[in-house]
């Protein structure tokens, strides 16, 4: 996502490091089974998401709408149909127990945690910067990095082509068709031209790149250079403190008793 916005300290962090920290956090979160702890660290991430992405609060709230859906939908199945001992409510197939309710909340908060982390990342990182940094710090092969960057640049062209096909279909009156056959026809007439066009374009780009002597050597020069700074330490420190403080608070002052 690339929309103009103010730059915050989160923008200044080395993109590879940011991604690495996020992946570690997500793997850690898979092993947290304590609801209080999960809630505490989710709040810590939500603070970053709400106040430090540099986007207007209106846009942030708009982006938060899917969060609520995800929270409700992930937790509801577990709450309504989960297993448990202490029965609270039963109606036909639905049985809400204390255990299923708590586990539902845990799953919901975990989904929220992942979502907030991911969106914070994509709101504060330009893909181009990420791939340049991955080439320099993680030694990602240039042919992968540049392919990704080229592919991301093709997205607007794909959108435009999609719109063209749509307009063409509208002019010819195919939009109004109903029934399963029409759905099949529409799927085919959108996907095939879009895919084959994209493949041809990708192939042409690759040939052009190789013709201009694109090579996969590691000792190349880069237009954007990335290193590490003090802010990177701050970023890591923030999450270490969050994990420790969250754990301490979950034991000393639990929000819900289990």
């Amino acid at each position: 996502m690339n929309v103009s916005n103010a730059e915050t300290w989160l923008h200044g962090i080395n993109p590879s490091l940011k991604l690495g920290v996020l992946i570690v956090l997500c793997i850690v979160a898979l092993f947290i089974h304590d609801l209080n702890y999960m809630m505490n660290i989710t709040i810590g991430v939500l603070i970053l998401f709400l106040f430090f992405t540099g986007h207007s609060i209106k846009r942030i709230l708009l982006l938060s709408i899917p969060f609520c859906f995800i929270f409700i939908s992930t937790s509801s199945a577990m709450i309504l149909f989960g297993q448990g001992e202490t029965l609270w409510f039963e109606w036909g197939l639905i049985s809400i127990t204390e255990e299923s309710f708590m586990r539902g909340l845990l799953v919901g908060f975990r989904a929220l945690f992942f979502a907030a982390l991911g969106l914070t990342f994509s709101l504060t990182t330009r893909p181009v910067n990420l791939f340049y940094s991955l080439m320099q710090q993680v030694k990602l092969k240039p042919k992968y990095a540049y392919s990704f960057m080229a592919a991301l640049r093709l997205i607007p062209i794909m959108m435009e082509e999609f719109q063209t096909i749509r307009n063409a279909m509208k002019v010819r009156g195919f939009e109004r068709g109903k029934g399963i056959r029409s759905v099949y026809f529409k799927m085919k007439s959108y996907s095939i031209p879009l895919l084959s066009g994209s493949i041809r374009r990708a192939h042409r780009i690759a040939v052009a790149m190789e013709a201009k002597r694109f090579t996969d050597t590691r000792d190349r020069t880069y237009y954007y250079e990335f290193g590490f700074s003090k802010m990177d330490h701050g970023f890591i420190l923030y999450f270490i403190i969050l994990l420790l403080a969250g754990f301490y608070l979950s034991i000393q002052f639990p929000l819900v008793s289990i």
Binding site: I23, P66, F69, F121, A151, I155
Partner: peptide, 19 residues
């Protein structure tokens, strides 16, 4: 690549899609 494309475009599932 599909997952990271989805991730960059701002999937509400965030990093989950990548994993």
């Amino acid at each position: 690549a599909a997952a990271s494309g989805e991730f960059f475009l701002g999937s509400p599932w965030g990093l989950t899609v990548l994993l």
